[in-house]
Design a protein around this nucleic acid. Structure first.
Lengths: 197, 197
DNA sequence: GGGCAAAGTTGCACGCCGGGCAAGATTACT
DNA sequence: AGTAATCTTGCCCGGCGTGCAACTTTGCCC
């Protein structure tokens, strides 16, 4: 977690990014089966062996690009005022997760995953990282000694409806995502006791 | 979806089960890296090539055993009275998902996944199948023409808190799961406006 | 800046994965 | 009984994933 000193970490980060984007782009262009690891490393300018120092498999590299969605969301969550209700913090973060740029990325990923089902598990894993990260962020705000189940349940429910929005948005490209997030969190706030529409 | 006639389907089903359990047991005994596909097929009594007619990879076979959790839950959901509120149906099904036998299975799987991180994505995929299946079941009960976002959000939130219960139960083996499910669905019903504990 | 330790990259080698193909076996249909 | 459809199996082969041992680069201290 320490930033370490410069060049080394920076280069690693750049190499990882280069490999991730190369894999993501190749998957977009040719489909998941349309390229081999060596194609990725050629594009990224490193050797095949190096690829496996960063990722365990091709699929991980492809979905890694979406990790920035995770990073942005977590950064935002940690920056929310400490006295803000947890529910409201999550609502704000939810809006960021489904920003236009992020949705574009997530939809490209979904498109690939539709054709190549084997990618789905890795897509889900990225989301799971986000849920667990958010949980940790919330726990820090809880009064000491407070049982952790409440924030655990809250964060799972919140990211559940966020996922619902993403799924729905993929099927209904016309809908305003901001509205969907509002609708989803209204349902959540009302305990799903109103159907609204 | 048609049952087809007997022997053929039955044998396929049995072969799939045999491969799944062989893989699951081997993973429990030796860990995910402690065996190769050929070990699975030897135990199941088929050829190595046949394995790949049923699963794309070893990991899929290992988690496939948990598919029965999915099947049971879906069967139960379809059998709920049609006029029962969706929320209540999901609450009942939630109790079944975290039955003692299922939890034993899910915990064994979690244990393996803890040691062998590469299994996690496949674990998540099984859960995702359950969420989408439940959504379909709920949609059938909605009045025709009703927008599908409400049940989509509901089912994602519900399985979100179920996942929270499973995660929590893995960390706190002493807790009563039935109580956790009640607590989780109470939170959900109350829109997370009460902390309770 | 010279030199050493730590960390990262690369090529090589090798076993396993994953699946196309075609032949053989088994089941379904009439 | 005969034929079509389905499933299994062995063969084969390119790609995957990784241990290992050089080699190169970076960090650090004198």
């Amino acid at each position: 977690m320490t930033p370490k000193s410069g060049i080394r970490e920076t280069k690693k980060h750049e190499t990882r990014r280069a490999l991730g984007f190369a894999a993501f782009d190749l998957a977009t262009e040719r489909g998941l089966q349309g390229f081999v690891v060596e194609d990725v490393t050629t594009r990224a300018g490193v050797s095949r062996r190096t690829f496996f120092n960063y990722f365990n498999r091709k699929e991980e590299a492809v979905v890694s690009v979406c990790g920035f969605v995770f990073d942005d969301a977590m950064t935002a969550l940690y920056q929310r005022p400490a006295d803000e209700p947890l529910f409201d913090s999550l609502r704000v973060v939810a809006g960021l997760v489904v920003s236009p740029e992020n949705l574009e990325l997530l939809n490209r990923l979904s498109t690939i995953a539709t054709d190549f089902h084997e990618l789905v598990p890795y897509e889900l894993a990225v989301r799971e990282r986000m849920v667990l990260g958010a949980h940790e962020a919330l726990v820090e705000r809880m009064p000491p000694g407070c049982p952790s189940f409440y924030p655990l349940a809250l964060v799972h429910a919140a990211f559940g409806v966020i996922q619902a929005v993403i799924v729905h948005a993929a099927d209904h490209p016309g809908d305003q995502v901001t509205d969907l997030i509002d609708e989803a969190f209204d349902y959540l706030r009302a305990g799903f006791q109103t159907t609204k529409s």
